[in-house]
Design a protein around this nucleic acid. Structure first.
Lengths: 214, 214
DNA sequence: GTCATAGGTTAACAGTGTAAACACCCTCCT
DNA sequence: AGGAGGGTGTTTACACTGTTAACCTATGAC
């Protein structure tokens, strides 16, 4: 294990224990029995170090998500992916927060490209889950990437409201809310009246009503 | 204008200019031609000051939202509220970020109650918009509060991914995504096949098909 | 006139990120 | 063998940070 790795591990421990505020170069150094400037041999900046941590957080999330591939069907895999996201957020809330630290928060201009691409990879993963559900006829045909974004946004929105303390509810209640919100997204909110009319019209016109006659 | 207000205004300017990092007690003091400890006559803490700023951010958002009440119909008011949220986030992104600073980020244990209730008020506002749409038959009957949460989460998720730079798209593209996501939430994602069957069955059974015969 | 209070001051403590200059050790090349 | 160079540490220093304690006024009330 290289010194760089040791620094990273130690930084991670400090971060998990005391948040970004508790992660100081000097504290890391002291813990490693070394003086602060030594760290600059391995990292450009404190931000550089933090960015590396963020990268790790993405990796951890990726590991959670990839387990969803064990599902047998596209629907199962999509469901598992949603569960995995929730589990990651609830089991590793500090890591989860790390995913969404804004550059401004770090006094940085932007998140480095190298990290953004990891986010893209996750987006891609979800897009794939969506697309295979569309191909299987489980989801409406649509732009898979946009649908994936909608899903991701809903997940992230819910979780970030929860971990940010904006939802004053207990964890099991929140989990129920999470699932309920997804149920709603899949079912749609719109009142059936007008939708039914459209559907019936469709059925009458195209007469592709496989199950309508029974 | 009291000195407390001057401090607040100055802090706000510094925050908008340079983020939370740029907001230091000494800088605020210097700008006001005063020494740092003087600020502690008006605020307990730096955090106390920041919390006050967060409170202001909630007020600004509230002002955006309340204008949605000028809409003529429940549907219009709901639409305007969604727009208002988006406009707030895009026009005042710094304020927007302020809404969601986590206590950990400030080294604080929790966000003070006094601020949480402002968040509750917004949630209540959205719940009311939802409920009146349900009463008008525009939305499915459901738990209005949960639906409001789903909407809020989707909004927040999308916006926070965008302002966090996770979505590498231009603003107009993002606005289209935002609207598209909502369209999707209202319409539902589920493939129509099975839904259509249910609906048709319903129509046949209950024969409350107002527009089905045409 | 005295006294409390609101609002400021200076000085100090403990901590921060980071840069410059210097020192050591290990490896590789001549 | 000996010197060059790179990797890794050190000390020292600078310019910041939040926050406290002690002290100093001006103002208004009784």
């Amino acid at each position: 294990m290289t010194q760089r790795d040791r620094i990273l591990r130690c930084a991670c421990e400090l971060y998990v224990a005391d948040g970004l505020k508790g992660l100081s170069m000097r504290r890391v150094a002291r813990r490693l029995g070394v003086t602060a400037p030594a760290l600059y041999r391995h990292f450009e900046d404190r931000n550089d170090l933090v960015f590396e941590l963020i990268g790790e957080a993405f990796d951890v999330l990726a590991r959670y998500l990839y387990r969803a591939l064990e599902g047998e069907t596209p629907r199962e895999r999509l469901r598992l992916a949603g569960d995995a996201y929730l589990r990651f957020a609830l089991e590793d809330p500090e890591y989860y927060e790390l995913l969404f630290v804004s550059p401004a928060q770090l006094g940085a201009h932007a998140i480095p490209e190298e990290i953004c691409v990891r986010g893209d990879a996750l987006h891609q993963f979800m897009t794939d889950r969506i697309r295979e559900c569309m191909n299987a006829g489980i989801l409406k045909a649509d732009d898979a990437q946009s649908v994936a974004l909608t899903l991701w946004a809903l997940s992230h929105g819910l979780v970030s409201l929860y971990v940010g303390g904006k939802l004053r509810v207990e964890r099991p209640v929140f989990e129920a809310m999470y699932r309920g919100s997804f149920r709603r997204l899949f079912d749609g909110l719109e009142a059936p009246a007008v939708a039914a009319a459209d559907v019936v019209a469709d059925v009458n016109n195209v007469s592709s009503a496989t199950a309508a006659g029974d």
